[in-house]
Design a protein around this nucleic acid. Structure first.
Length: 312
DNA sequence: CCAGACGTTGTT
DNA sequence: GTCTGG
DNA sequence: CCAGACGTTGTT
DNA sequence: GTCTGG
């Protein structure tokens, strides 16, 4: 939308433009809240999400669309979008190909080795290796956890929130993250590289981002455990994202928070009185390399070393 | 106080 | 569990 | 993150 | 467009 001047407080017919803009904004949020409320009620009644969408359509309750129209009006009146500026992309796919014994050596874990295959296309919902501090033994453990944070109070039947990412900037403000953060349920997520997709008109071009020496990154994460039944627990994790460095910025507006080795102990909680959130900083671009990869990585069923081959 | 939500990204 | 909105 | 699916009745 | 599954 073109930038416009909005110096005039009143239109020619005496309309209070600022008041009109406030009214539009208030109505927009009420409409959005009403839609969410209705959807929430139906969901709790056990109605399938697709049916909920059909109810919205059948009852002309396409309030999201109405909100979009309202925002157009709001932008015209004030020159600003109610939703503000949006940012692009996150961290939703990576590769972890080091053998379990290599990860144990690199991160100094001491629990019995588990077995897992090299994963060239790690995606949300998969069981993936993370490093945690065992609270009683005080030692580091390497375990497989499910990607997508499932808090203990989650309603599994309703498939609630399972965020794959947490924004570093707002980590301590979000109820779903404050609990694991404060309880020291912080972890390192090893990645040999992560993928980001660059939008090019109608197409997308995936890129790989790795350390200069291709050794695994330690990405900051949080983990949770939920009791599913007697003796059965669901352990899960989420990846923390932050601002991109100059290298990643060419492709996307977010990147995972990669911790230098000097920050591992602080993040894991091995150092008393250290401030874990103080280590959540963007890794400098000089420590990373990037290259184009084949679009085949988009399909999670593709999982082979060829996905890492550089494209010209 | 209770009820209800709790996240990310990407789009209008 | 814990925070926000009413 | 992307790929792939996306119904059927009866209806204010 | 929007949701689910991987």
């Amino acid at each position: 939308m073109e930038q416009q001047e909005h110096d005039a407080e009143r239109a020619g017919d005496g309309t209070d433009v600022a008041k009109l803009a406030r009214d539009v904004e208030r109505l927009l949020w009420r409409a959005t809240a009403a839609e969410r409320m209705l959807a929430g009620v139906l969901r709790r009644m056990g109605v399938d999400q697709r049916q909920i969408n059909r109810v919205h359509a059948a009852q002309d309750l396409d309030l999201a669309h109405a909100a979009g129209e309202a925002n157009v009006v709001h932008e015209w009146l004030t020159g600003e979008s109610i939703w503000g500026e949006y940012e692009e992309a996150m961290c939703g796919r990576y590769a972890i190909i080091d053998a379990p014994s290599d990860l144990r050596a690199r991160f100094g874990t001491s629990n019995p080795l588990i077995n897992f295959d090299p994963n060239y296309n790690a995606a949300p919902t998969q069981a993936l290796p993370v490093i945690r501090l065992h609270p009683k033994e005080g030692t580091r453990h390497l375990d497989l956890l499910q990607w997508g944070l499932v808090p203990p109070w989650a309603d599994l039947a309703n498939k609630g929130l399972q965020p794959t990412n947490a924004r570093a900037e707002t980590l301590l403000e979000k109820p779903i993250f404050t609990q694991p953060f404060r309880r020291g349920q912080r972890c390192l997520v090893p990645m040999n590289l992560f993928y980001e997709w660059k939008k090019l008109g109608n197409t997308k071009q995936p890129y790989a981002f790795a350390a200069v020496d291709r050794s695994p990154f330690a990405v900051a994460g949080l983990w949770e455990v939920k009791k599913v039944s007697e003796g059965e627990f669901l352990r899960s994790f989420t990846v923390i994202t932050g601002k991109p460095n100059q290298l990643v910025q060419e492709v996307h507006d977010r990147m995972p928070i990669i911790l230098p080795e000097s920050a591992w102990a602080t993040w894991l909680g091995e150092i008393p009185n250290a401030m874990p959130d103080s280590v959540l900083k963007t890794l400098p671009a000089e420590l990373m390399q990037a290259w184009k990869v084949d679009a085949a990585v988009g399909n999670v069923r593709n999982n082979n070393p060829g996905l890492l081959d550089p494209l010209p």
